[in-house]
């Protein structure tokens, strides 16, 4: 992938995610969903990816070269649910910006499409003490980042 502006491949430090039952209740309530469930609501695949990023959404925006009030929008999101998430389990969250492509448009004259991947990872120790990792959820997503300074 090509890079645009100052956005190039970069990896965020690992973060952590633990979904508490009351947090799941809050998200379910926000969605108008049944407020109890055997497992966290499926929306946690996306919410948890953001929430658990090592440097948070603020950090992701910094990596995109944008501020939180610069009108950044979601572009696309491909979510793979390998294993459903569980309440009260500790996960590692990884985030890597893959790069950006500069585009032009009518409503937003110049913008970058920035692609990134997040993974919510289960870590456990095997019987022999060997650490194992399984990706539970992977999101390959893009953000639309307006670049008004490039349009001037």
């Amino acid at each position: 992938m090509s890079t645009a502006g100052s956005v190039g491949p970069a990896r965020m430090r690992d973060g952590a995610l633990r979904i508490q039952a009351f947090e799941d209740w809050l998200l379910r309530d926000a969605l108008g969903a049944p407020t109890s469930g055997e497992r966290p609501h499926g929306a946690w695949t996306v919410v948890g990816s953001f929430r658990g990023m090592g440097e948070g959404l603020d950090g992701l925006f910094r990596m995109l070269g944008a501020g939180t009030d610069d009108g950044v929008m979601f572009g696309e999101c491909r979510i793979e649910q390998v294993r459903p998430l569980e309440h009260e389990r500790e996960y590692v969250v990884r985030c890597e910006v893959l790069g950006a492509t500069r585009r032009t448009g009518r409503r937003v004259p110049v913008f970058d499409v920035v692609e990134y991947v997040t993974e919510i990872v289960e870590q456990s120790a095997g019987p022999d003490g060997t650490a194992t990792e399984v990706v539970a959820v992977r999101c390959h997503a893009s953000m639309i980042v307006p670049r008004p300074e490039a349009a001037a």
Binding site: H41, G42, M73, F74, G75, C77, R78, Q81, P84
Partner: peptide, 20 residues
């Protein structure tokens, strides 16, 4: 939520690929 109500189990969703 729509998929969970249809299937009865959101764990059955393997992937969701969307454009905003």
């Amino acid at each position: 939520e729509m998929l969970a109500r249809w299937t009865g189990d959101a764990g059955l969703v393997r992937s969701l690929d969307v454009r905003f």
